[in-house]
Amino acid sequence: MTDTASWTNEWMEMQQKYWQNWADASQRLFGQQTTPATAWGNAMEHWWQALAPAAGSDMARGFMDKMVEQGKFFFQMTEEIAGKMQGAAGQTDWTAAFENATASLKEAFSRLGAGDPSVHKMFAFWELPFDNWQRMASSLSPVPGDVLRNMPTEGMRSKLDRVLGAPGLGYTREEQGQYQELTRAAVEYQEALAAYLGFFSKMGVGSVERLQWLVKEAEQKKKTIGSAREFYDMWVQCCEAEYADRVMTDEYTELHGRLVNALMRVKQRMSVIVDEYLGAMNMPTRRELRTLQDRVQEARRETKRLRSELDALKKQLAGTAAAPAAAASPAKPAAPRKKAAAKARTGAR
């Protein structure tokens, strides 16, 4: 840890000098186009890549990854928008500059919906919900969650339907049929994934429109957005509001169901094939194990029910045996009621 601390301190000093120099230069070159956020992002990435292996737990490492990633995003976005706004300084109508700045964002969202992979990294923030899905899908599958993301679909379905619709031939026809089913399920999943992503790109455009509206509102209220952080928080607010509105629609709830169901169909077809192989190797299949699990559970229920009945009978017998003895013994004060006895034992009011 001492080495890490020393390394970090050196890095911090270097950063201090670097950014001081940059800030001085930017003040001299005020108004000129520069790309400090990209430089910052690169510097942070190098720093963290060097330090990450020393990070103790996976949690701490993942945590730092996210802070660096989000920092890169919000500085780059602010630089893009604020840079274009600076160009409008001195003009009475700044809205044209702002709309110009946000138009490129909208256009990029449209490309995202059309499946253009070049904009994915740029829109890592907007893709957070989608990224979460991919991580989850990966955890349930032996293949990466984004394996089918950019598979072309146009025109493919009809061709595939013809191929997949052909009956299996010969000795392995059943096996061929299973692979055809798996392929069909994978294509359906990919289509559901594309529709899901397309929906998010529409949401992105809606968020930009909300941002435009909020910025105009800020101007009317004579407020100024004076920091990248403030701008980032405003962007998050727009994204969440747009998201909340859209994910309650019938269109989204159907897409959501379609996506999960499609993934399950792929997994189900894979399980059938895996079971076939396990059976062929004379190993227990999942289907067989589930039958056993069900039978064991049923037997356990029965055992627990019988044990409960036995305990009740024992208590009843003990009560019956005690009753004649009590009747034979001299009279005693009445036993306290159960609740009162409990109060006495626990020292309660």
Partner: peptide, 15 residues
């Protein structure tokens, strides 16, 4: 302007 973030301010924030 409603968004007034000068490059030197941005650099300072990044630092």
């Amino acid at each position: 302007l409603p968004i007034e973030i000068r490059p030197d301010q941005l650099a300072d924030e990044m630092l």
